[in-house]
């Protein structure tokens, strides 16, 4: 499985479109020369595939095909900015993209689903969706406050949120300094004209709906390795609460990993390579054929 001595690989970056209900969704792929595993990355509220220009080639150099779907309304995908459609549409978009990914990588390549921040909530919802049937081999939740709305809002507040169909914008209050202390990345985040920093109020009702899918599960998760990874602390996420939700969701069989940073966006910190290396390995190992 491992080549211990080789030059840097001439990896590729490709963009294909997943056609969905009149919307073209951009599926970015950092393609390795020798494809041995794959990761499908669920980006958070603000980011998009363009944020991953450094880790994409790193994964590909590890023989990992690294896929990122610019969610509807994000990155270079079609769709209303700042306004999420209903939960079913979002999850169907992801399911369609993952079906495309499976077609590209084949049935036997181990596939890891990797959700960052809010992307972790999309991932958890998709994994628990009764109709989601694309096979995967591992899952990673990264710096993701799973069940945040349920944890921070009362029942009455959640009911009000669920009924809110307003289109005025709700500012997520994201600060680049919470994501990274590297000024290069801070500057990029602050000036990224593709970034989404606010959502319509009705979009938050969608987020609540997504949380319900994994907090009130209607299906068992497949028996594949699942882990939660974050910094030692996180300025945006209540890690204790996130861990609690994660442990309950995975019936106590998931792993919890902490990397030595206090920033939120691990890929823009000094632990980037550690995270890429660990998650690459975590994606590849389930592909070992013990019958070989």
């Amino acid at each position: 499985m491992l080549e211990l001595k080789r030059p840097p690989q001439n990896t590729r970056k490709e963009i294909t479109y997943v056609r969905r209900d009149g919307a073209d969704l951009a599926l970015h792929l950092w393609r390795p020369k020798n494809l041995k595993g794959a990761i499908f990355y669920f980006h958070g509220l603000q980011s998009h595939a363009g944020w991953l220009w450094e880790v994409g080639p790193q994964y590909a150099d590890n023989d990992i095909a690294f896929f990122v779907l610019d969610r509807r309304g994000s990155g270079i995908s079609d769709g209303e900015r700042h306004d999420l459609p209903d939960a079913e549409t979002i999850l169907a978009d992801y399911a369609a993209a993952l079906a495309t990914v499976r077609r590209i990588i084949g049935e036997d390549t181990p596939l890891q689903l990797f959700g960052h921040c809010l992307g972790g909530s999309f991932l958890a919802a998709l994994m628990h969706h009764p109709e989601f049937d694309v096979p995967y081999d591992s899952a990673v939740f990264c710096s993701s406050w799973l069940g945040k709305l349920h944890a921070t809002l009362s029942e009455e507040q959640r009911a009000a949120l669920a009924a809110d169909d307003g289109t005025e914008l709700w500012d997520a209050g994201l600060k680049s300094a919470d994501f990274t202390d590297n000024v290069k990345y801070q500057h990029y985040i602050d000036h990224d004209d593709l970034a989404v920093r606010a959502l319509t109020r009705r979009s938050r009702a969608t987020l609540l709906e997504l949380e319900k899918l994994y907090l009130q599960p209607r299906r068992e998760l497949p028996d594949v390795p699942v882990s939660y990874v974050s910094g030692l602390t996180d300025p945006i996420v209540d890690l204790d609460d996130a861990h609690k939700t994660f442990i309950e969701m995975t019936n106590g069989r998931g792993g919890i990993i902490k990397l030595p940073t206090h920033q939120h966006y691990l890929y823009y910190t000094d632990v980037r390579t550690s995270l890429v290396t660990w998650s690459s390995t975590y994606a590849l190992i389930p592909g070992l054929d013990h019958h070989g």
Partner: peptide, 10 residues
């Protein structure tokens, strides 16, 4: 996009 638009190389 940093790749994929003009060529398929990062």
């Amino acid at each position: 996009t940093k790749g994929g638009t003009l060529t398929c190389s990062p």
